[in-house]
Design a protein around this nucleic acid. Structure first.
Lengths: 216, 216
DNA sequence: GTCTATAGACCGATAGAC
DNA sequence: GTCTATCGGTCTATAGAC
C-alpha cells in the first residue's frame, strides 16, 4: 500500500509520491502533452518551481508513473511462472499459468488504475515513452509464448494465431481502464471472472469441462 | 472510395480531404495536442496560413475526422437493424443483429483505420471532443440494448451484465487499431471471424451447435 | 490558394531570495 | 521546500500582399 500524504508525519508539503498521484490523475484527465506544469502546480497548490524541486523534468514524472504500472505487470508474469506460489494442483499446465497471468493483469489494472491507464496511452514520441513501450512489448511477448504453449499442449484452440489471441485478450482486459471506476458494483475478482469467462470459454477446446457441464 | 489528390483533375494544392488525410495521420502519430499546425504545414509542404484557408481551426480538422469514424459506426447499427439487407434466413434474432454489428464494426475499423484510431483516443476536453463522445456513447447504448435482447431471447449467456459484455467485446474489437496495419497477413473478414470466434463462442450458451460439434 | 510576418498567449525550465 | 520573476521558445490564429 502506498503511503499517502495524510499518513506522513508532521510537515506540510509534498513528497514525490504525493506529487506523482496528482500528476498522473491530471495526465489521465487532460492527456500528458496537454497538461502544463502550470495547471499541475495549480492543482497541487504549489508554484511550478516547487515541482522542479522534486522532479528534474516533466518527463521524469511520466517515467516514474509508467514504472509503477510496468513493474506491476512484470511481477504478474514472473509470479505466474512459479507454481509453488499457488496452493492446489501438482500439475501446472501452460493454460493454468495463462489463467494466472490474465487474472493477475486485471488485478494490477484495477489496483494501479491511474498508472496503467497512463501506460496504455503512451505512443512512443520521447525516449522515456519508447523505453516504456519496449518493456510493454517484452511483456506481450511472454504472454504470446504462454498462449502458444497452451495451444501446443491442447488446452487452447489453435485455429487462431497465438499473437492475435493474446492481443485480443489483452485488448479486452486493457479496455477496462476506459470504464472501470473503483467503488463501482464490480470488484477486481468479479471483473477478472467475467473476463476469463468470456475469453477462455471461447478459447477452451470444446472437450472435458464443457462436456461434463452439458451432460452431467 | 475517397478521391485522393493524385486523382484530382489539373490543379496542384490541397482540398479539404487531402489535408484531412495528412492531418489525421499526424494526429495519430504524435497525438492531437502534440501536433502543431507548424509541423502539419511542414508535412503538407504548405505554410500554416494555407491550412487556415481550408479549415477555420485545428479543432475543425479534428471535428471532420471524427465525423468520418462516427458516421461509419452509426451506419453499422442502422443497417444491422434492417434484416431485409441480408440474404438468407427469414428469422432475425437479436443475436444475428449483434453478429452483424460486431462484424460491421471490425470492417469500419479496418477501412477507416486512421479516423477510428483518432476517435478512440478522444478524451473529451474540448466541445468538439465532447460531442464526439456523446455520439459514441449513443452507439454503445444501442449495442448494449442488442446484447440485452440477445440475452432475453436465450441466445447469449446472461450471467454477465449486458453493458459489461458489450464493453468487453468492443474493448477487444477496438484494440485492433493498436496493431492492425493494412496489407498485413489478415484481411478484415478473417479478423472479424477471429473476433467473433473468441467473443461469441464464449458468449454463446453451451447448447445446440456446440453439442452437435461434440457428439456429431 | 498560397505566402511572409507577426500578434498575443502559454510552454518547460531556471535563478536566486527566503 | 517554497516562492517570484523571467528566459527563450513554441503555440494557434490573423493580417494582408501576391
Amino acid at each position: 500500500m502506498t503511503e499517502n500524504q495524510s499518513m506522513r508525519r508532521g510537515r506540510p508539503g509534498y513528497d514525490r509520491q504525493g506529487i506523482l498521484d496528482v500528476a498522473v490523475a491530471a495526465f489521465n484527465e487532460y492527456g500528458y502533452d496537454a497538461t502544463s506544469m502550470g495547471v499541475l502546480a495549480e492543482r497541487l497548490g504549489l508554484s511550478k518551481s516547487a515541482i522542479y524541486h522534486h522532479f528534474a523534468s516533466k518527463d521524469e514524472i511520466l517515467d516514474q508513473a509508467l514504472d509503477t504500472a510496468l513493474s506491476g505487470l512484470e511481477a504478474v508474469v514472473a509470479d505466474a511462472a512459479r507454481p509453488e506460489l499457488v496452493e492446489g494442483p501438482t500439475v501446472d499446465r501452460a493454460a493454468d499459468r495463462l489463467d494466472r497471468v490474465l487474472r493477475g493483469a486485471v488485478h494490477v489494472l484495477v489496483e494501479q488504475l491511474p498508472s496503467v491507464t497512463l501506460l496504455l496511452r503512451v505512443r512512443g514520441n520521447t525516449e522515456v515513452e519508447r523505453r516504456a513501450l519496449a518493456r510493454r512489448r517484452d511483456f506481450d511477448k511472454r504472454v504470446t509464448a504462454l498462449v502458444a504453449d497452451a495451444q501446443r499442449e491442447g488446452s487452447l484452440r489453435s485455429d487462431i494465431d497465438a499473437s492475435v489471441v493474446s492481443r485480443l485478450a489483452f485488448g479486452m482486459i486493457n479496455s477496462i481502464v476506459e470504464w472501470y471506476r473503483p467503488g463501482g458494483r464490480e470488484n477486481a475478482d468479479g471483473l477478472a471472472d467475467d473476463v476469463i469467462a468470456i475469453a477462455l470459454d471461447g478459447l477452451r477446446m470444446p472437450t472435458s469441462n464443457r462436456v461434463e457441464e452439458l451432460l452431467g
